[in-house]
């Protein structure tokens, strides 16, 4: 088993933290994971991409080349990374930032209003944690308990809010969109 996940957004959206949380939760469950990131020198606004490889055996080649799952948090991110998504892969995007979608092809596509759901909880910064929970549930890779545990371990501030974000992501009823 080898699953490749890419979370692509712009600096400040928490893509890299989301990748770390996902990988750490996988390791907590006894799986093997690598996590890498690519970003520019900018603090905010530039491209920020987090990659995760998860396997039931040690991962030799550490980087993602053809994601099974792509989370696009920005139009630029979708435009840059959709070409790498596997032909039968899954795309999750936030329609607040991604408005132009290409042909769906054989892929599964989910629109998830991550930023607005985070706004509803009180702070947009937790959109990345909701994204982790959504992918965790959709992929069936991670239990809610392990996601809750790593969120608690790795995010120092706003523990209650972040746990709400996990619950929100898991509770979401997601159907594929056209």
């Amino acid at each position: 088993m080898l699953i490749e996940l890419r979370i692509a957004g712009t600096g400040g959206q928490g893509s890299v933290m989301a990748g770390q949380l996902f990988a750490a939760a996988a390791v907590k469950q006894g799986l093997f994971a690598t996590q890498s990131q690519f970003y520019g020198s900018e603090i905010q606004g530039g491209p920020a991409v987090a990659d995760v490889r998860i396997s039931d055996e040690p991962v030799m080649f550490p980087w993602v080349t053809a994601p099974d799952i792509l989370v696009a948090l920005h139009q630029n991110a979708l435009d840059a990374h959709l070409k790498y998504l596997k032909p039968d892969g899954t795309l999750i995007y936030d329609p607040l930032f991604v408005t132009r979608l290409p042909e769906k092809g054989g892929r599964t596509v989910h629109a998830v209003r991550l930023a607005e759901m985070a706004d509803g909880l009180g702070r947009r910064v937790v959109a990345n944690v909701i994204a982790v929970a959504v992918v965790a549930r959709l992929s069936g890779l991670l239990t809610q308990d392990s996601v809750r545990a790593v969120v608690d371990e790795r995010i120092a501030r706003g523990k209650e809010l972040n746990q709400k974000a996990v619950a929100t992501g898991y509770a979401l009823s997601i159907g594929a969109t056209a």
Partner: peptide, 9 residues
């Protein structure tokens, strides 16, 4: 950089 900034199990 590739190794320094890589997370692994």
């Amino acid at each position: 950089l590739f190794l320094g900034l890589l997370r692994d199990t």
